[in-house]
Write a protein that binds this DNA or RNA. Sequence first.
RNA 1: GUGGGCGUAGCUCAGUUGGCAGAGCUCCGGAUUGUGAUUCCGGCGGUCGUGGGUUCAAGCCCCAUCGUCCACCCCA
Length: 428
Amino acid sequence: MAKIKAIRGMNDILPAQTPLWQYLEQNTRAVLSSYGYSEIRTPIVEQTELFCRSIGEVTDIVEKEMYTFDDRNGESLTLRPEGTASCVRACEEHGLIFNQVQRLWYTGPMFRYERPQKGRYRQFHQIGVETFGMAGPDIDTELLLLSARLWKALGISHAVTLQLNTLGSSEARAQYRDRLVAFLTEHRDQLDEDSLRRLSTNPLRILDSKNPQVQALLDSAPDFHACLDAESLAHFEQLKSNLDAAGIAYEVNPRLVRGLDYYGRTVFEWVTDKLGAQGTVCAGGRYDGLVEQLGGRPTPAVGFATGVERLILLLEAEACLPEHLKRATDVFISAQGDAAGRQAVLLAESLRDVLPWRVTLDCSGGSAKNKMKKAVNSGACVALLIGDAEMEQQVVALRPLRHSQDPQLVPFDQIAAVLTAATEYFEE
RNA sequence: GUGGGCGUAGCUCAGUUGGCAGAGCUCCGGAUUGUGAUUCCGGCGGUCGUGGGUUCAAGCCCCAUCGUCCACCCCA
């Protein structure tokens, strides 16, 4: 019989990896909390219509990447390909953005049917941040400061850079799109197959083509920023001067456009050159029209999403992680013989009552040498050994595993106090 | 959907022109020993991704298929 394996592009996160994920999650919660953001949790499945209306009908996500299926009652449902639409839907449904501002975040799995590659999977995880009801560049600034603080907390600031652009108002964007299409149509002989296709579907996307010939052609294309409306330009200028004042480095990239239809004005990406082709680690922007598009009142909004798998890859490659994350326990207790085994269970429980350290009891048997090896391999800082000799004297052999010291015999009733005082064994 | 690389022990990988299926690590047992190191001995572990074909003989050659990785497209 064929073995059942995980679905392509949907990965198990194994015990060797989960400490890294927890480290990332803990730091993220701490940073978001320090800015006063609240967590929101929405279902993983939504009505298909929600994503079609928000992301845009002609995007690749909606056209060919969604996990869509019929519920038993015939209703079309979709596994969420991103988090913003669900977040807006939930806020609107529960009146969270009616005459009030919100600062929200969420995390969880997203699903897109794509060919997996480095940093890109069919089930992937995002940490999303969304704000509602605030129209000025100060909230855009806040989001960028927040994300920069997160990189600092994670120790990856040196590995990411900020790309910034403004897409202007939808009128300005439409105007520019016409001029760009006119220009590119004139030079269509220089466009590759992909760009020709996008010329009719989503011409702005040609701006961030990876084809060097197309990029060369774009050097003589009409200037995006020359078409911008005065209001958007002022918003962008204010954002830039806020970032300058706060000491956040950025690079204005007039060819930065985002794939989802709902973005306007401010857009940004945190990118890295350490992850191969999938260099975008965090991206977002302003989507002032989306709430209205989904049936709500016109509501200004800005947000971003980070790819958790990509951050994990960066952490593995670039960050110095705390030593204790690399081991699963601190105190390893091993007993030999029935009486000692019963004593060890009670000892472990009593230590867990009072110690701040993690305590693991060896339940796997084996020879004395074998048990010692297991203690070392467990990653623990200290081994507690109980055999017949120890039982007779009512003591435990305490053996530090990371220092070259001889074992010390400690009476049962003093072991908690001795370990509590022995902080030097547990440092790092 | 398109292109390329790779599929041999739990892991990392050798495997010659087609001729008995291998090593290191891990794990288990033993010797030495400082209850953990070093060294040494032994053991467990395989439908060579799968299915066809060629051949006296296929891990190796041919065809198909699946999986995986990377890249394109797209995106976090």
